[in-house]
Every structure is written in structure tokens, then in C-alpha cells.
Design a protein around this nucleic acid. Structure first.
Lengths: 252, 252
DNA sequence: CCATCTTTGTGCACACGTTCACAAAGACAT
DNA sequence: ATGTCTTTGTGAACGTGTGCACAAAGATGG
């Protein structure tokens, strides 16, 4: 997880577990769907199914927020939507800037679910002077030179980085210096930020590699029931064989 | 986490913790960078810094893979790159299909880091007949009707869903029925899959909401300096004022 | 060959997260 | 009112992940 570690004093204050926070948006989405269908109340069992979690976990999660919910009945949908929204800070408006308007940046700018929930794209920023002024998703792209001014003028505290990896840290530094304290990073790099700044990362490549790991394991179990043959340790500089690896793994 | 739980027999066989698996790609990236700079060996301390984790964790992670590494020296970069690649299953080729070639799908298709590491875009699939044949990122888009055939012909086991939320489950079902066992889902929906299929999700909206939560909390702490007031258990019905926590701070 | 110095690999303790299972709360009918 | 039935809220047990701290492994120099 890339969330800034809780600083010195553990998870004090209101102490909602991080894992719970990460699920609240899920519950909110399910509840919003119910709300649109005018469903008045929902049980933990039903809601949990809709959110794809188990009901005990859901109830415990909600218990951190307070004692909403009525025994024998369930939760009032509208009320819960409100409470979770408030807890997540979605009752206020969050101006967001997207830096790096390439394929991905443009896709993010066009993403609808963005504005829907309290988030507003305040500006699109790109380093390419040729992009400046051109509208993307109806918003004119501004040049990187204006970054600091844009942040300050709009009171932006959340920045999205969709630049190439090489530019990400530099952009990040400038965002932070200008006052941004939360960053969503799509660039495949580790960002270093000062204390008090939260970074979350979204990395296609990492996700695929994790899937590949499990995929390989499935394939392996299938064929070689009881695998074996662990490679022996290699001492030092060894150059490794010309390529003759991938021993007997391969799904053959 | 959306990874399919290890099925019945616990985390047996090779038993690499999920948390470790999720960090391996990070290490691999850092190691690849070192490799390109022809750095021969690296200590756990250095590598950990590059990957943004702490060194004890890194060493423990590597210990699950085996005893690579030489005391007093560190790890052989090339060798580790190879070992991690193999562990992640990146020494083989993974054909991938992307379904839903809208803004996001196109951005993903254009994403370079895709093909770089063992993954190959086998096909782009979209439901819009008008898209069929048009090349995106140099690959002609195929129509959804051909989905099953494409999967089978190419032996695809990993699918990426970038469709609107409404279509995601249906696409998912078809992918799974055709033989896909790992899915990366960009659509904002909970996907239901049979046992043995892994799903990972990437959700912009959720990430932003998590950031907003922490952002709100920072804003709250800022004003109410000496927080003091420990959460303390709340007995029961507490009703609490319309804004219990975050003492009416609300920036702006 | 021995001493010293560096860095790994890991036992241990603790924090966090998940799940079970059940008492208590409340709705609802009689 | 009282009893029954549903569903919450949570204590307790368990499992997973993290970080410290240190012994053992090996390099390196005399």
C-alpha cells in the first residue's frame, strides 16, 4: 500500500482502520445503486453481497463509524450514504489537477466517475508547449510553468500524476512544494515525499505481474502435482546460462 | 485486495505470502534499473531504499524465494532479476486481451510498459461495430462476437476489462467461460467469478476517495491542534450531533 | 590462518486484519 | 405486555504482515 504511514502516534485520533477506509468507497457505491432504486433499507448480508465482502466484516467496518443500523431491520440506505460520504470527505468539493496529458492523462480527464463524487478537475497540466491551450475533455491544457499558480489559485490539495516515469518525481516535488498533500501516482516509479503527504499508486504493470504469478502457479499445480527441483544457489558473478532457463516450468 | 483467495489447501506448496508477491514487481523494477546501469551487486539497504520499503522487510521477502544473496556483500543484481522474473512467471510470454477500447482501453493499449515484461497484447476487443478493424496502437480492434475465438486461438489466460461498468460482468463471464483465469478490472463494479479465477481491480474513484479521507483528516487535525480527545468507545445509540467528528472544521 | 568488518537470514514480539459466534436490541404480531 | 424472530454490534480467537535485533556467514586484510 502506498498510503503514507500513520506518523508517529500510531493510528490514534478517530482510529478508523486503513483497511476499513479502503472499503468504504465500495460500500458507498453499492449503497448509491440501492438509493437510485429507491430501496429504503438494506441488511448487512445483502449489502455485503453487493459490495463483494463478507457480512461480518461489513458490520465491523460500520461499527467504526458509529452505531447506525437498526437491529432486526438493517441499515437506512439514505442515511448510510450520507454518513459514509461525510466520513470520506465527499460532502465537500475537491479540486484536482492532472499532470501529464498523454494517452492516460487524457483518459483520466475524460473519465466520468471523476466529477460525479465531489471531485472536480481544476486543471490539466502538461509539459509540452504544443499542448497548451488545446482542450481535452473540454478543459484547456495549461503549461507546466503555471503549475504553482494553478495549485494556489484553486486551493488544490490532490494531484494526479500521469507523466512518464522520468518526470514523475520532479512533478511530485513541485506539486508538494506548491501545497498538494495527496498524490495519486500512475507513473511507474517510487515517489519520495515528505511526511504528511499521502501517496497512492496505480500501476498496471505491477497488477499484471501479480496476476502472472498466480497464473503460473495455477498452471504449475495442474501439471506437476508435486513440484520440486529448487534451483541451487549461485555463488557470485555467474553470467547465467545463455538463456537456458525456464527449466521445466512452462505449461507444456 | 481482490486476489482470489488461495483455494482449499491454505497457502501451501511454495507458500510465498501475498504481501511479498505484491512487492516483487517493485524490487524487480529497481533491480532492472540497476542492471541497466551495470551495477553488479546491491545491498538490502540500498535496494530497499530504491524500492521504497524497509530493508528488513526486503530481506524477509527474499528469504521466501531462497537464499540468494551473500553475507557481507549483498545480492547479485543479474541473478536476482532472473530469480524474481522466474518466480513471477515473466520468463514466459503472456498473451493478454483488452476488452473495451474507449479512452482508457486505448490508453492501456498504448501503454509501453505493457509489452516490455513478458506481456503481449494479443487482441483489442470492443462491442462497437464501428470500431472493428480500426487500428489502435497498431493493433486492429476486433468485435466482441469474436471474443471466444480469440481467447482460444491465442491461448489467452489474462484479460483486461476496460468497459463501462454496465458491461463488465457480462464481459467477465464470457472471458471466464472461454478460458481466462486472471482478470484485471478497470470498470467500477464488483465482479463475481467462479473459484480459481483471480480478479484484481484498479479503480480511480476509490483511490481518490481514500485520499480525500486522509486529506479531510489532515485538515481537521490542523485546526484542532491538540487533538487529545481519544476516540473512546462509544457505548450504544449515540446519535451524535450532525457532525460529531471533525469538529465543524471544514475548510472553507 | 586468524581477526575484523559487513551484511544476510531469521526468531520473536507486536500490530493489524479477518472471521466466528453469540448476546442484546429492537421490530412486529398476538 | 409479552413472546418471537430478525439482524446488529462486538468479544475473542486466529491468521497475516511488520520491524527489531542479533547470530551466523562470508569477505577482506594482515
Amino acid at each position: 500500500m502506498a498510503t503514507g504511514r500513520t506518523h508517529r502516534p500510531a493510528t490514534r485520533s478517530r482510529g478508523i482502520p486503513e483497511a476499513t477506509v479502503a472499503r468504504l468507497p465500495l460500500y458507498l457505491r453499492a449503497l448509491t445503486a440501492l438509493s437510485e432504486r429507491s430501496v429504503p433499507t438494506v441488511s448487512s448480508e445483502e449489502l455485503a453481497a453487493a459490495a463483494g465482502v463478507n457480512s461480518a466484516k461489513l458490520r465491523k467496518d460500520f461499527s467504526y463509524l458509529g452505531s447506525y443500523g437498526t437491529r432486526g431491520v438493517g441499515y437506512d440506505v439514505e442515511y448510510l450514504v450520507y454518513q459514509i460520504s461525510r466520513e470520506l470527505g465527499l460532502t465537500q468539493d475537491w479540486p484536482v489537477v492532472i499532470v501529464g496529458i498523454g494517452n492516460l492523462g487524457a483518459a483520466l480527464a475524460n473519465y466520468g466517475g471523476f466529477a460525479s463524487r465531489g471531485f472536480r478537475v481544476a486543471a490539466l497540466i502538461d509539459a509540452d508547449p504544443a499542448m497548451a491551450g488545446k482542450p481535452v475533455a473540454g478543459i484547456p491544457v495549461r503549461h507546466t510553468d503555471e503549475l504553482e499558480k494553478i495549485i494556489e489559485d484553486n486551493g488544490v490539495s490532490i494531484g494526479v500524476i500521469a507523466t512518464p516515469a522520468g518526470a514523475a518525481q520532479q512533478v511530485c516535488d513541485r506539486l508538494v512544494a506548491a501545497g498538494v498533500t495527496s498524490i495519486l501516482n500512475f507513473a511507474p516509479t517510487v515517489l519520495t515525499v515528505p511526511d504528511g503527504v499521502d501517496v497512492r499508486k496505480v500501476d498496471l504493470s505491477i497488477e499484471l505481474q501479480i496476476l502472472a504469478f498466480h497464473e503460473q502457479r495455477k498452471a504449475g499445480e495442474e501439471t506437476a502435482a508435486g513440484d520440486g527441483a529448487v534451483p541451487a544457489k549461485r555463488s557470485s558473478a555467474d553470467g547465467q546460462g545463455p538463456d537456458g532457463d525456464v527449466p521445466a516450468v512452462m505449461p507444456a
